[in-house]
């Protein structure tokens, strides 16, 4: 005889999915009516004006719910839901990005400075995580090349190094007893990868400013590389001569290379990279789909690696 029976949740108590998915609209409507006052402090997503881009995929977009509640952002904890739970505490304004190293115009740029001259585009990109899952995310951002050009890289600059904010007071993962990674999180690209038109700095998604858990206020998106290359909450961009250190490579050099291009032919030492599960692809009966070389962007980027042994430079 079962002595434990889970309590039945009356179907009347469950918010219909359609309503749930429209909760932002409902909130917005409530706000417009003046029903929601100070409590919307955390819901500070602001609408962005963007233009469409030919680089966008027309694949089904992953829901905003999944994009904002299934994140790897270890500064806020190692669970997928930790970032959405804890990133609210992050202060993203004021925000400055130091651009230094081998540039003619090193400076501390405020976020407003950075965004003022750029036209924000909507870039709907596939995002493939090194863990074997993927999403389709409508980013709002601009080519990284535009910002780098403003700083005028010197001829000696060969690589770009990026750094995430270190602020343990607002980032619980940075206060952890056993740090999962060394802080700050650092990433890097070769200069030609950084200047490639597909490489963007995102400041929003789904037409609104970036939620903190997705790397607000400014993050890197390199769609043909594994997701961890997309460094979040960037505070420093340095032009350098030598290949810069990268966080996951430092953590496990045999498992995560500097390039980390999506490649179904080069497995992670511990798991296959041949296929992926698309998040939101039909619940627990979702079938895996094959992973594409360079995450399906081979036509645009394969030339960057001509003649390179991608198994050696993984």
């Amino acid at each position: 005889m079962p002595i434990f029976k889970p309590g039945r949740i009356a179907s009347s108590e469950i918010t219909p999915r359609a309503v749930y998915l429209r909760r932002r609209e409902l909130l917005a409507g409530a706000a417009a009516l003046g029903l929601v006052g100070a409590m919307t402090r955390t819901a500070r997503a602001a609408p962005l004006t963007t233009v469409k881009s030919p680089f966008s995929t027309d694949e089904t977009r992953t829901s905003l719910q999944d994009i904002t509640d299934y994140n790897n952002f270890y500064e806020f904890g190692t669970s997928k839901t930790d970032p959405s739970r804890y990133a609210k505490s992050l202060t993203t304004s004021p925000w400055t990005v130091k651009i230094d190293g081998l540039v003619a115009k090193p400076a501390d740029y405020t976020l407003e400075d950075i965004l003022k001259p750029v036209t924000l585009e909507e870039r709907v990109y596939r995002m493939r995580c090194v863990e074997g899952w993927s999403m389709v995310i409508p980013w709002n951002g601009f080519p990284l090349a535009e910002l780098l050009k403003r700083a005028e890289p010197l001829g000696s600059a060969k690589y770009v190094a990026f750094e995430t904010l270190v602020r343990p007071a607002e980032m619980p993962g940075q206060r952890a007893f056993l740090p999962v990674l060394n802080w700050p999180y650092v990433e890097g690209l070769r200069l030609d990868e950084a200047m490639h038109p597909l490489t963007i700095l995102a400041t929003g998604l789904y037409g609104e400013t970036l939620p903190n858990q997705n790397g607000a206020p400014l993050r890197l998106v390199v769609p043909w590389k594994y997701g961890f290359k997309g460094i979040k909450s960037i505070v420093r961009i340095s032009l350098v001569e030598k290949e810069p250190p990268t966080s996951w490579n430092l953590q496990a050099p045999s498992e995560y290379g500097f390039y980390s291009n999506v490649n179904p032919e080069v497995d992670h030492p511990r798991w296959s990279q041949a296929s992926e599960r698309r998040i939101g692809d039909g619940g627990i009966f979702a079938k895996k789909r094959p992973t594409l070389k360079f995450n399906g962007y081979a036509d645009q980027v394969a030339g960057l690696y001509a003649g390179m042994d991608l198994k050696a430079y993984f």
């Binding site: 997928k80 998040i279 619940g283 627990i284």
Partner: peptide, 22 residues
Amino acid sequence: LAPGAWAFYLGFSDQLGADPIK
């Protein structure tokens, strides 16, 4: 076994988050 049964229930009713199989 109840937590397992509950997990399956959540899985079948699409309440196990973004990557329910995992």
